[in-house]
Simulated scan of single mutants.
Amino acid sequence: MLDINKSRLEDLSESTKTTVLKWRNQHHIRSMMFNQNKITVREHEQWFENLKNNQNQIVKVFYYDEIPMGVVTFTKIKNTLLYEWGFYIGNIEAPKGLGTLLGVCALDYYFTSMNKHKLVGEVLAYNQKSIAFHKKLGFQQEGILRQHYSVNEKLHDVHLFGILKEEWFEIRPYFNK
């Protein structure tokens, strides 16, 4: 059984940035992203440098048992107080269920350390695992943008999710079991 006490989030660093690029370029991760292009080393380096002065994006590496396993990002939505999140487990040796721990750590961080009131997520309709994941974590589906995003010249719906701070703290004890 996985132990929440063995998980933590750390800032993306020089020591983990190459691993994150490798994970992000894996086909099974790229194919679920809005940007499905393979990221070059140069693009990644530029992104990493820009993060240092970017107050609107927070990138954390998720660790389990001292091993980097995944990534979570929080990106401020322009002209709002809200952030949108993105996440993935990149380590192919990650034990089953680790995504849930990543989600719990991320939501705890967002609502406690960042002290925000609402988090939103957007999911491509064909990413059924992510849709189920959001619902499992207590997100409410707030809408569907029909035929909204083009992937390989095919239009896809985008599911919109949101969770309020009080909703998270209501469901949070369930994940201590």
Score class of each variant (00 low, 15 high):
M1G: 06
I4K: 13
I4D: 10
N5Y: 15
K6H: 14
D11A: 06
L12R: 11
L12V: 01
S13T: 07
E14R: 15
K17H: 06
T19R: 12
L21T: 12
L21P: 14
L21I: 10
W23I: 03
R24W: 12
Q26K: 14
H27C: 13
H28N: 13
R30H: 02
M33W: 12
R42I: 14
R42S: 15
R42D: 13
R42V: 11
W47A: 04
F48E: 11
K52F: 09
Q55R: 14
V59S: 10
K60Q: 08
Y64K: 00
Y64F: 07
E66C: 11
M69F: 03
M69Y: 08
M69G: 10
F74K: 05
K76V: 04
I77S: 12
K78Y: 12
N79H: 07
N79S: 09
G90R: 02
I92Y: 10
T100D: 02
V104F: 12
V104H: 04
A106S: 14
Y109S: 08
Y110S: 01
T112P: 03
M114T: 06
H117A: 03
V120N: 04
V120L: 11
G121D: 04
A125L: 00
Y126Q: 01
K129I: 03
K135L: 12
K135R: 10
F139V: 00
F139I: 00
G143N: 13
I144N: 00
I144M: 04
L145F: 13
Q147M: 00
S150C: 09
N152Y: 04
E153A: 13
H156D: 02
L160W: 02
L164V: 05
E170M: 10
P173I: 14
F175S: 11
K177V: 05
